[in-house]
């Protein structure tokens, strides 16, 4: 049964790469977009915590 399912009626070499490429592309896009958001969130947090300290030093 699973053998037949994964064989895709002899077309496994076409069906699975199609799904695989879709999964890889969509996952990569999602992860890079997420990483970009996390990076900018972290940088913004650093900057905002840096700002008040500067004001204390130089009023």
């Amino acid at each position: 049964m699973t053998d037949g399912f994964f064989a895709m009626g002899g077309y496994a070499a076409y069906v699975w790469p199609a799904f695989g490429v879709t999964a890889v592309v969509l996952a990569a896009l999602l992860l890079t977009s997420r990483r970009r958001l996390k990076a900018s969130e972290a940088l913004l947090r650093d900057l905002e915590s840096a700002r008040p300290r500067r004001r204390e030093v130089n009023p």
Binding site: L30, S33, R36, L37, E41, L43, R54
Partner: peptide, 24 residues
């Protein structure tokens, strides 16, 4: 929709960061 929101949020924050850095 989800990925566009993710990227948009990142871009809005990046603009904010640029403004802050200029201020600093």
């Amino acid at each position: 929709v989800a990925v566009v929101i993710l990227r948009l949020r990142a871009m809005v924050l990046e603009r904010k960061i640029q403004a802050l850095q200029r201020q600093l």
